[in-house]
Amino acid sequence: MTHRASIMFLTLVALFLIAPFVVVTGVSFGASNTIAFPPKAISLRWYQTLITEPDWLKAIGLSLLIAAIAATISVSIALAANYALWRTGSGLSKLVFALGIGPFLLPPIILALGASLFWAEVGWYGRMEATIVSHGVFFVTLPLVIIARGFASLTKEVIEAARMLGATETQVFRTVVLPLIAPYLITGFALVAIISVNEYLIANMIAGFVVETLPIKIFNNVRYGYSPVVASASMLFVAITVTALLVLARLTDLIGLLGASKED
């Protein structure tokens, strides 16, 4: 591809990727009761509905709560697995790593059905705690891989120096390791939280009829006749997701985290 052709191609791809959201934005600011684009008159009424109607507020709150706790669980497991691998390098810790990649590779419907059968047997079927734990465990892959990059970036000399000066393992972890891997922990946490907020199928199969998260509410609305409030809810989502990633890009080197830096 010549340079100009490749820029044209990228522009077209970007249009394909962004166009749907331009239309949804237009719909969400429309004043009429029906879905229409371009909107005939601009109004904020659908956003007002979104933040004043208790039903929508509850869904937003539930989604954020589930995401925050699930991300904490996910990062704890990923940190534990990585710490064990780094300290011991044992077969068990390698097995944990291999297990942690699994959920990422399997179709979510399999995870969702397995989880719903499991929770039904345990007696937590239809409970928010079940959704939280399943989200936390199933989304462990990204933090696992990202935190592994953090541990890989630790140089031996720093750790050795701390040990020589008489630091205990706990002190080494708290004062040397933790500050150095903190950006990786934050990135892992943010990604799991974003994915959890957006996830539909697993949340729906475990407790969808009781614990109505934002994606479940939007899906139900679209399926059984919808109003432009769905468009404003969707745009709220897009805003949350993009803002979180922009903040993340400020805090860390995203390109490097993907492993795309030449220096790696």
């Binding site: 949804v24 879905i35 684009f37 957006n198 539909y200 989502f237 997701t241």
Partner: peptide, 17 residues
């Protein structure tokens, strides 16, 4: 952003477009 965005939102956006 697109990778993290809910299938539900993307589906809804295409439904409209």
């Amino acid at each position: 952003s697109l990778m993290c965005l809910s299938e539900v939102i993307i589906g809804f956006a295409w439904l409209i477009i």
